[in-house]
Design a protein around this nucleic acid. Structure first.
Lengths: 356, 356
DNA sequence: ATGAAAGCGCTAACAA
DNA sequence: TTGTTAGCGCTTTCAT
């Protein structure tokens, strides 16, 4: 009734369990007639080696725990996709769990995974610098690799883009095409050190251009529902001509809210995001954004972790290249704000001026 | 150096390993002074119970394998999100893997997971009716639950919407608002029995209305890149006035391609999808579609499977409710095709006529 | 080339 | 209430 074990195979093939094990793991160490009998027995019984027994013996599981804020944001599910494909190639399994952006759940998530004896962890935490949990993992010598969290100074391994420089680049682009009043919108900064880095980049770019950074606008929720806040923002005396959102999901929500408010993007206000999720290219207007190679980042993180598990020393964090993707959601500001005048719709024909 | 085991705790607390185990699993069976010493030892050593040992002993792992076509399509990552949250609540871990829509990889994916001794599987396969792999799982008495795949006749457990009826409903809506030439677009039907069901629904609706179903248009790729095919389709003598896509990702890609072709949606052609992924509400025009409760479906599938693992009999498949979500991508057809005349843009002011 | 046996960490009989 | 011990399925010395 129960699944056959290596013993059943041994009995049927009239060999010892050791020989069965060898037939599977070091075939060159077993002679042909024996191996043949073993394979036959395996087929007859439908035997499938039990990794749990093997893992117990080996003290490792070839399993990687993955802690991400959510799987519902495409940036993370694309990463998971890359991660898992790489794991498969390396013959590892992946056990992912989501914290739903709750910092206080990160610890329990890791504990759960460690009880399952994952060999290592890949994680995106709210704040990599101030995480007592990461300190603990270090202390306990649990191998882990961060994704998305900024590459830090220490010997912690991380795979991420240079969030600060990337943000500075996209904001500099807005400045280049003529914007002077650029606001940055973000979700709660405490749940994302990436967003905090991007905010620094935003300030860098404005200060470098001799412009005044505006106070960060924190949005309560992510996918839409910020109509009131946006109305206030754009109804101010000197409204921004461009908005930089700390991530694409936020940007797409803002885009919808702006359209609900009757504001045209980019004619009334330009809009830029960060992450480069696929849907940014499908919306109208398509989203100007910074593209992170999420799937590749996941794959790199996996390979980095496995290399570490295999004892490789002198491994280094990876700073991945980002790219500025110009979409239709940004263009030069109108010389004067035209809130009441309905300008001709020019979306289709507008052409971006590229940076020289 | 190595992690402390239950033996180390026992030694330090000067009790037997059995007592340590009991302290953790049946605290009521151990007296206070003893329990105190054990807990102290646990803390001192930073002991974390090794689930691998426990699993080997118990013959189960409290781990569920999940096989999905991809994590990059929001419909599946939303499902995974719901799945994993439910698993956490039930104290199960989840090991997901993607087949990248390759039927021939489904078997190996399951084999891998079963070697890891997952207690059961949740899966979306290409074709649930003709899957020798599912037959095998049945034969081996591996507990599993299907998601998205149509609820079949047999005793197989599945969680899905009624794809055929839902598709018929959305197509009937197109008919109701005046469309007469409605084409259906889909990816390869062999990789999706859901799409096949939806195609039947499409035919049902047209036949019920006395209209001629058109041959299914199979699209080579998913997110965009079908410009040529669409040009041909819309350039035909009697071009369709409405397109029904077998899923939202396809629909959004088609939307982009149509816009690239200079065709206006819905003025030149109406467009409907299926799945109800979040981004359908963000694009302009927002997508008319059938909403499946993906996260909830994942959670239900997980609870159903766990109930089965716990020996509950008489469990039944779940047909989830779907909903027609009317977006801006559909409206009544122009009385005459106006391919050259540029009609006034009416997107904003157009109101859908709801079915009576 | 093959077998016997120990042991990975844990739980559950059974004993005391 | 606590301890002793067998054994879950496997790999790996150490013999032969």
């Amino acid at each position: 009734m129960s699944r056959p074990s290596i013993r059943d195979v041994a009995l049927l093939a009239r060999v010892s369990v050791a020989t069965v094990s060898r037939t599977l793991n070091t075939p060159e160490a077993v002679r042909e007639p024996t191996a043949g009998r073993v394979h036959e027995a395996i087929d007859r019984l439908g035997f499938r080696p039990n990794h749990v027994g093997r893992n117990l013996r080996a003290g490792r599981t070839r399993t990687i725990g993955v802690v991400l804020p959510t799987f519902a944001n495409a940036v993370f599910s694309e990463c998971l996709q890359g991660l898992e494909a790489a794991a498969r190639e390396l013959d590892f399994a992946v056990v992912p769990t989501a914290t739903d952006y709750r910092v206080e759940d990160e610890r329990e998530a890791c504990e759960r995974l460690l009880r399952h004896r994952v060999d290592g962890l890949i994680l995106t935490v709210a704040n990599a610098r101030e995480s007592s949990m990461l300190d603990r993992l270090d202390r306990e010598r649990v191998p882990f690799v961060l994704v998305y969290n900024p590459v830090g100074a220490g010997r912690r391994l991380a795979v991420s883009v240079n969030n600060r420089r990337a943000a500075a680049q996209i904001v500099a682009h807005l400045v280049d095409i003529g914007h002077r009043r650029i606001h940055m919108l973000a979700g709660s900064l405490v749940t994302s050190d990436r967003a905090a880095q991007r905010h620094l980049g935003y300030r860098d770019a404005l200060l470098a251009a001799g412009l005044a950074p505006q106070p960060l606008v924190e949005m309560p929720n992510h996918l839409g529902g910020n109509v009131g806040m946006l109305r206030d923002l754009l109804g101010a005396r000197h409204p921004p001509t461009a908005l930089f959102c700390s991530n694409d999901v936020l940007a797409l929500g803002v885009l919808r809210d702006l359209q609900a408010l009757g504001r045209r993007v980019p004619d009334d206000v330009s809009l830029a995001g960060f992450d480069g999720i696929a849907f940014g290219t499908v919306v109208t207007p398509s989203l100007t954004t910074i593209v992170q190679p999420s799937a590749d980042m996941g794959a790199r993180a996996m390979r980095l972790l496995v290399a570490r598990l295999e004892g490789r020393r002198n491994l280094d964090s990876i700073e991945m290249p980002h790219a500025l993707r110009l979409g239709e959601s940004t263009h030069a500001p109108a010389s004067r704000p035209t809130r009441t005048t309905r300008a001709t719709r020019t979306t289709r024909t507008t052409r971006q001026r590229r940076k020289p």
